[in-house]
Design a binder for these strands. Sequence first.
DNA 1: GTAATAAGTCAAGACAATTGACTTAATAAG
DNA 2: CTTATTAAGTCAATTGTCTTGACTTATTAC
Lengths: 401, 401
Amino acid sequence: MNDVRPIRAKSGTNHEGTSAHNRRVMIDALRVNGQLSRADLARATWLTKQTVSNIIEELERDGLVCSQEPVRKGRGQPSTPYRLVPEGAFAIGLQIDRHVTRAVAVDLIGSVLVRAEAGLPPGGPSTGTKVILDLVADVRSRLAGIVQQSEKRLVGLGAAMPGPFGVAGSGDDPWMMEAWQKFPLLDTLTAGTGLDVGLQNDAAAAATAERMVGAAHGLDHAVCLFVGYGIGAGLILNGELYCGANGNAGEIGMALLFADGKSTPLEHRASLASLYQHLSADPADPGLHARINDLASRGDQSIETWVEAAAADLRWSIHLIETVFDPETVILCGSAPEALVNRLIAAIGPLLPSIAERPGRMLPRLQPGMADPWSVAIGAAAGPISRAFDPRFAAILKDFL
Amino acid sequence: MNDVRPIRAKSGTNHEGTSAHNRRVMIDALRVNGQLSRADLARATWLTKQTVSNIIEELERDGLVCSQEPVRKGRGQPSTPYRLVPEGAFAIGLQIDRHVTRAVAVDLIGSVLVRAEAGLPPGGPSTGTKVILDLVADVRSRLAGIVQQSEKRLVGLGAAMPGPFGVAGSGDDPWMMEAWQKFPLLDTLTAGTGLDVGLQNDAAAAATAERMVGAAHGLDHAVCLFVGYGIGAGLILNGELYCGANGNAGEIGMALLFADGKSTPLEHRASLASLYQHLSADPADPGLHARINDLASRGDQSIETWVEAAAADLRWSIHLIETVFDPETVILCGSAPEALVNRLIAAIGPLLPSIAERPGRMLPRLQPGMADPWSVAIGAAAGPISRAFDPRFAAILKDFL
DNA sequence: GTAATAAGTCAAGACAATTGACTTAATAAG
DNA sequence: CTTATTAAGTCAATTGTCTTGACTTATTAC
C-alpha cells in the first residue's frame, strides 16, 4: 500500500530566489564589464532602474561594490559607475597534488593575497591531513593580518586534487592519490576548518580560474585542456562548470587511444608523468620544474622527441573536444613549465579541421591559459566564490544549501 | 568618449519568472512520477501546500492537469492525485532526412497522434520546401480532426535534420543535405506555418525523445549515441539538452579516428552510410530498411563483417562518451532496423573499462533506445514541448522569448 | 536662455509566495 | 463506539520583491 519509490522532483523557487539571482546577475555583469552605472545595469539585465538601484544599494552596504567618480558622457545627468570591491569577499583554495600541497587566499576579483606551500609526506591522508590543515590555518591567519574582517568575508574553502573520484582504482599508485581520492576529505576539511568546503578535480579548478581571471573570462562555453601530471578537461558549459553525474566529467586523460594494436590512456602518452618517465626523472625532485623549463627553452632533443609525440595526441584531443563540446574556444593550461607549454602550443599547430572552423569566428580555436603553477590552487579558491556569487540555476532554488 | 563595446550581462528575473518556473516544476514532477497529490508536490518541490494548490488550480483551469479518484493511504484525509492531461498541449515534429521527410503530431506526454511521410525530391530546399510545408499542413489538419482546440494548444513546430550547422561543407554531398543545412529553414517554416519553430540535429532530437518517453525519462545526465545515416550524440546535461556554442555539440561522427596510418571520421566507419556502402546498396531504396532487418536477423555474413567492425568503433565511442561526459547512462538509438540494433548491441559488449564502472551503479552503462524510425520526428516534436513546459534556467529569465 | 536628454529617486501598486489557523476525512487506540 | 491522532487541503492576512509613473537633478545641444 505504501509507495516505496521516492518522489523525484526539482525544487521550486520564491522571492528570495529571484532576489538572489538578480544580485548575482549584477555582480556577474560588473565582473565581466569592469564598471557599469545603474542605468547600464538596468538596460543590460532587463531589470528596472529602481530594482537595480535597490540591489546596488544593498550590495554597497554589504561592501561588495563601490561607486566611482561620476562621468559625463553627452547630454543628461552624469552616470555614477560602480565596480566590484576586491576585498568584499575571500576564499581559500587548496591544491593537493602528489608530493606537494598549496594553499592560497583569493579575493572577489581573483587576486591572490596569500600563498603557502608544503611538501606532502608519504603515507597519504593519514599523515597528510595535519600538514594540510596547518597550511590552511597558516594562510587564514596571514590573511587576517593583511585585511580587515577577513573571517567574516570568507565564503569558503575550495579543494582541488586529481580525479577521478569514487572509481575503483587502478592499483599502480606510488603517490597515494588513490588513498586521497577515497578519503573523506570534505568531511575532514569541514570539521578541521569550520568552513564551507567544496571539492573538484584539478582540471575543473583550472577551468574555474580561467573563467574568473583568465582566457575564459566572460565566456559561457569553453573547455580547458589541462596538462599536468595527468590530463583532464575542465568544462564551462552554459556559463557553469559542468561536473557530470558523479563529478568526473572531463576526465579525458582516461580516454583510450588505439595505436600499434594496443590501447593506452591519453594520460600515459601526453602528460607530464609521461615526460618524467621519458626523461627518467623523479617527479618529487623540487628542481625538476626549472630544469625542464630550461631544457625546453634550449630545444633539448630528448624533450623535443616527447613534445612531438605529445603534441600529436593533444592536437587530436583538441579536435575531439571541439567536436563533442562545440565550445567558443579551447584553452590549453596546466602545471607544465612555461617554456614547455610554449613549445607544445607551437608543436600542436596547425590544428586538425573540425566544426570549430566556421566563418565569422571571433576567438582563436586554441589559446594558452595561465602559466602559473598556482593556477589550480587559485581555481580551487575560485570555486566557492563562483558558488556564492555567480548566476546559476541551482542558486535560485529553495533546496540550494 | 562613447563606449563601442556592448555591455555583456545575463538577464535578471522577476515574479513571472518565479511563477513560470514553479509551474514547470509541477509539470515536470507529474511527468516523472506519473501522478502526485498536492501534498506530495509540496514536499517534493519545497514549496508550501498553498502555493502548490494555487498553481495546480491554475494548471487545471488551463487544461494541463486533472485530478484522479481520491486515494486513502492510512490516517488522514485521502489525497487527490493529479496527472498530466495528454491533450493539454500538442506539437508538430518534422524530420528532414536525405530522401524522405516525416511529420508527426505529438501530445503533452509524447504520444503520437498523427504520422505523415513523403519522399523528398532531388534538388534540395528549392523543391523540397513545398513538400515539407504541405506535409506539415496535412498533419495539422488531421490533428484538428482528431482533437478539440488543437490549434489553440499547439505550442510549436520542431524540426530535426542532420548536422552540423553553419560549417563550411565537405563538398561530397549527393543528398543535398549541405544545401539544407545552409538554407534559412527556420524563417521559411515560421513564415509558412505561423508557428513557433525550433531546429536541432537528429541526434539531439533522438535524445529529446528518449528523455520524454524513453530510457532517459527523468534522468538529468544521459547521452544518446545516435546511429543513423550519420552518427551523432544527443546530450542531456543537467536535465537539459546541451547544444554547445553553435548548436553543434555532440557531432561525434566527425571525430577523426587514426588507424592504419590514416585518419577517418567515425561516421565513415560505423554509420548506416558505411553499411550501405559496404553492401553496395542504394540508400534511396524504400525496401532497404526491411531487407537489412531481414539480413541482420538471419546473421548474414556480409552484415556480420560490418557489425563486428562497427561494434568496435561504437564500443570505443561509448567509452569516450563515458569518459568525457560522465553520464548516468548511455543510450544507443538510431534509425537502424531493430534486428541490426540488437546485433550491434550484442556485438558491442562487453564494454571497455571506464570511470562509469563504479560501485553502487543503478542503471546499465548501455541501454537500447527507441527502435522506431519515427523517433527523430517524435523528438523534434518533443523540442517545443520541452521548451514550453520543462524547468530550465533560461525560462526564468526576462529575456526568454 | 531654453529645450532635450539621460540618470536616478520617490511612493504607491501589483504579484506571488508564506504563514498560521482552520476544516475535512480518514485510521488507530482505548 | 468514542475519542485522539494524523494528514490533506483551504482561508485570509502578511510579506518580500519587482514594477510603474511621476518627479528631481545634471548635463549638452541649439
